[in-house]
Design a binder for these strands. Structure first.
Lengths: 153, 153
DNA sequence: TTTACTGCAAACGATTTGCAGTCCC
DNA sequence: GGGACTGCAAATCGTTTGCAGTAAA
């Protein structure tokens, strides 16, 4: 279970990266960036939208999606598609990690499993696949939900 | 890269399992079962539908989805949701394996990676999560697509 | 005969797109 | 001032659902 603390330096990096692309830095966009970077819990587009609206009530969901698309494109955000109930967004794809997905409270925790680091390499050799990226998800019930009979969310 | 040969015995098992549930054995349903069991490449609902229609042209997509839902419910089929372009279906969830997903031809291959077998257990202990199931996906380009510049599909 | 299943069409829900107006740079 | 961005509403698209008719048991 890993905390993902806010990293102001990373926000600067993303802003600079956007500018380089010729993208403009709008308040809505910055708000989305901050929310994603500060979220350890991998929010959904709807959740991001709700949180942006606290500061910018006019912000539309479409804008959130467009910003997310941009970030995905830059490789700065990973989409965790869950099939049902849409996708969740991971603002820290750089260091590879697994996801622990709680089926009760729907939160997604990061897990650092060192053993997985060597895997792509060995799979690549044994299968002939050229592996670009991977995804390791564990589904189950988090420790909090095991203790509390009522869901937390 | 694993072949998944047809297993008539498994068809019988599923049919029996359905009967036990009070479900009826219709031609369309059997067709879907056979296609899933004989597919090593994890077809989409649309693909299954197209293949069923070869023998039963009247079959609707809704029926395919309903049968898939039934099989998922029985734990006999796993849904591999890819976010974009819908889900794919794995008729061999019993023995746990990873998926090698080719980003070019969109085929999904099975990979048996022994190292992963012990993972759930150890993750469970180190995180306090109760893990019910997991999913290991490797994304990249399959060896065929690396050799052929034109996609195969 | 019973009632689960089928096919159709309409509904759904997350995501996307087109467009006219806005406002970063 | 120009063009990227925004917000809105409509469009998409895979999947689900409701329902009247059909057929497995």
């Amino acid at each position: 279970m890993t905390e993902t603390p806010a990293t102001p330096a990373r926000l600067d990096t993303l802003v600079r990266c956007l500018k380089t692309r010729g993208c403009r830095i709008t308040p809505q966009r910055v708000a989305v960036l901050k929310i994603i970077l500060n979220s350890a819990q991998h929010p959904s587009a709807e959740e991001i939208h709700a949180r942006v609206q606290v500061d910018y009530p006019m912000t539309s969901l479409a804008t959130v999606y467009k910003t997310l698309a941009l970030l995905k494109d830059m490789g700065q955000v990973t989409e965790i598609s869950l099939g049902h109930s849409g996708s969740r967004y991971d603002g820290h794809p750089a260091d590879p990690h697994s996801h622990l997905i709680c089926l009760k409270c729907n939160r997604i925790f990061d897990a650092d499993i060192p053993a997985l680091a060597a895997l792509p390499q060995s799979v690549q050799q044994s299968t002939g696949f050229t592996i670009t990226h991977q995804r390791f998800d564990f589904f189950g019930i988090c420790s909090e939900c095991q203790n509390n009979p009522t869901s937390i969310t």
